[in-house]
Amino acid sequence: MNGPADRAQLALLLEVAGTPKPGNVDRDRDLPDLRFEHFLAGAIGARAGLELAEAGEPVGVAFERAVEGMATQRGGNTQFGALLLLVPLVCAAAQGMTRSQCESVVAETSVSDAASFYRAFDHVDVAVDDPPPDAPALDVRRGADAIPAVRERGLDLQSVLELGVPDDDVAREWVTGFERSFAAADRLADRDGPIADRAGSVYLSLLAERPDTLVATRHGESVAADVHERAATLADRNAFERDLTAVADFADDLVAAGINPGTTADLTAAGLFIALERGSITV
């Protein structure tokens, strides 16, 4: 792996290869309209945007290009949230893979970066409904139509994402110095075994830590809490190591119910990149 773009692409591939990953696509499970190969193709398509980030292009430009490329496969949105984490992390990697450097990258984002973020929504369905006529001017469902309001208010991308907290844990990473992403990287380094299997284990630990915000958005907070509590029960029993059957059953149950903790998968991908960039895990 020669550079951060290589390692970011590898992180996307390792994330989807991890199994069992309750509710998400993995190497053993597809969703009805979203399959393993869609994620592989999405990781390949995102490459040009990741290379822009490595080359020092603005975060927004690199992110929009990564999403545009990701969306060329037929499955739809595979890694939008993961790329929203990975692009600033790749930008930061040139100066050192530290939380303080990541904070500097997001603090230096611009109004143009925020405009690119909104345009990215026009490239792919990100599991949001069309905005009602009375939706706020900055509602992400507006896509590029929100850009005049962004420019009028002079909002940079970090400021826009702050508006998503606490309802979106990807946005939360942008305002907490990628706290959980770095924690995931530490857990990956501490575990043994094949990296893809460690990714599945760390995914479960993250789901046990907090309710997934994508599940809360799609299914309500009570469902997200139930999923979190079941994950916590398995993690408390160290069941990922002792009883893979129980975790696999949990995974099958969530897939059958159409419950997809996608934010937790995004955090896992970010953690994989950080660990790869630090050299604390190697392939």
Rank of each mutant, 00 (worst) to 15 (best):
M70D: 13
E51M: 08
V160W: 00
A199H: 04
L86T: 15
L85P: 10
R29G: 02
A8R: 09
G262E: 09
Q9M: 06
A114I: 13
F39L: 02
L14N: 10
D6I: 07
A270V: 14
R29M: 03
M97A: 11
V87N: 09
A94C: 03
D212M: 03
L207M: 10
R151Y: 00
V202I: 09
G60I: 12
D186S: 12
L272V: 10
V16C: 03
L31Q: 10
G42C: 03
L163C: 00
D122L: 01
V215A: 02
D192C: 04
V59L: 06
P88C: 06
A270S: 14
T98D: 03
V87R: 09
V90I: 10
N2C: 00
E15G: 06
M97P: 01
T19N: 02
V111W: 01
R7H: 01
W174T: 15
P133L: 03
G177R: 11
A114G: 08
D168G: 06
R187S: 07
G75F: 05
L14W: 10
T282V: 14
R230I: 07
N260K: 08
D113P: 05
P132Q: 12
E229G: 03
P133G: 14
L85Y: 13
D129A: 13
D156I: 07
S159L: 00
C102W: 14
G279R: 13
L234Y: 11
